[in-house]
């Protein structure tokens, strides 16, 4: 149950990868808190319904992966958690997404305070055109951290993002001068600096080379000790490698709205999917 191997066919090259290896230590935390819950959540871009009736939950200090083919609404769901979709005009959410039991889509919820509690890492590395130090300090300054703690916190978060050794001599240099992988780890450091409760990652490795990808994945596994992470990924191996639980989403061919097909422990999803469509996707027959 705890360790399993599965034959995955990706492209034409059959690979054997191990999945679910870290589940055992998490069995102890089985009673973990439900950090985020989506309850009958619908999402609209104007008149277009992008998410239909999604209900799922994310446990504290778990890595939860959202997988599915393009256009299935997984990024929309992720960006709904910290209400990043608000920046697009004409969007609205129905139903509830609860973070710590509070509905972020409540009429009087404050998206800015919400985002200060939830860090986000984006598809493409997007450091500010500022120095490395200022990049990491940005969230701290917004959250009003005491001045004397900021430098320590910058070092801590850069260490956690496994970037400290590479940049400690050039904190004053621009963040744009780093390589792609380093930039993405800088973005992770920036996201974790204000100690968010949740980190959302939107295909964080899609613009990176395999070596940088591995480094980022190692960072994620490291971060799992402290943070709850939700990750959207196109890469099924990545979901298998890093996540504890996986949600498979799919666009409903009739309504073109994204729906949650199956949600469960990563191991179960990859080895023993309950839904036929999940199985098709996992085994590479579709998507």
């Amino acid at each position: 149950m705890s360790e399993a191997e599965v034959q995955l066919e990706v492209g034409s090259v059959p690979r054997t990868i191990s999945i679910g290896v870290r589940t055992r230590e998490h069995e102890k935390a089985e009673a973990a808190v439900q950090k985020i819950e989506a309850v009958n959540f619908n999402f609209y871009y104007g008149k277009f319904k992008a998410l239909n009736n999604v209900t799922m939950s994310v446990r504290e200090r778990y890595i939860t992966a959202l997988i599915g083919p393009s256009g299935c609404g997984k990024s929309t769901l992720l960006r709904a958690i910290n209400r990043m979709n608000d920046t697009i005009t004409g969007t609205r959410g129905e139903g509830a997404i609860l973070v710590n039991g509070e509905n972020v889509y409540a009429a009087d919820a404050d998206p800015i305070m919400l985002r200060r509690r939830i860090g986000m890492v984006f598809q493409r590395p997007n450091p500010f055109p500022k120095s490395i130090r200022d990049n990491v300090a940005y969230g701290l300054k917004i959250a009003g951290w005491p001045r004397n703690e900021i430098d320590d916190r910058i070092e801590q978060s850069l260490r956690q993002a496994a970037l400290w050794d590479e940049v400690k001599d050039r904190l004053k240099k621009s963040g744009m001068g780093l390589s792609g992988g380093q930039q993405q780890r800088l973005c992770i450091a920036r996201a974790i600096a204000p100690r968010p409760e949740v980190i959302l990652m939107d295909e964080p490795c899609s613009a990176l080379d395999p070596i940088s990808t591995i480094k980022i994945e190692e960072t994620m596994i490291e971060l799992r000790r402290e943070y709850t992470i939700v990750i959207v990924t196109h890469n099924m191996q990545q979901a298998a490698r890093v996540s504890n639980e996986t949600a498979y989403m799919l666009m409903n061919p009739q309504t073109r709205a994204g729906e949650l097909v199956e949600f469960g422990e990563t191991e179960q999803i990859f080895t023993n999917p309950r839904d036929k469509r999940t199985e098709d996707y996992i085994s590479g027959r579709f998507g």
């Binding site: 305070m113 985002r115 200060r116 986000m120 997007n126 055109p129 500022k130 940005y138 917004i142 204000p194």
Partner: peptide
């Protein structure tokens, strides 16, 4: 836009990110 989103994601109000990120850039 990605740079703006980064600041939004950190919980920055729009005016603050405009003054500290967008205008300097």
């Amino acid at each position: 836009t990605t740079v703006r989103e980064a600041a939004f994601g950190l919980g920055s109000p729009k005016w603050w990110l405009t003054l500290t990120v967008v205008i300097p850039a």
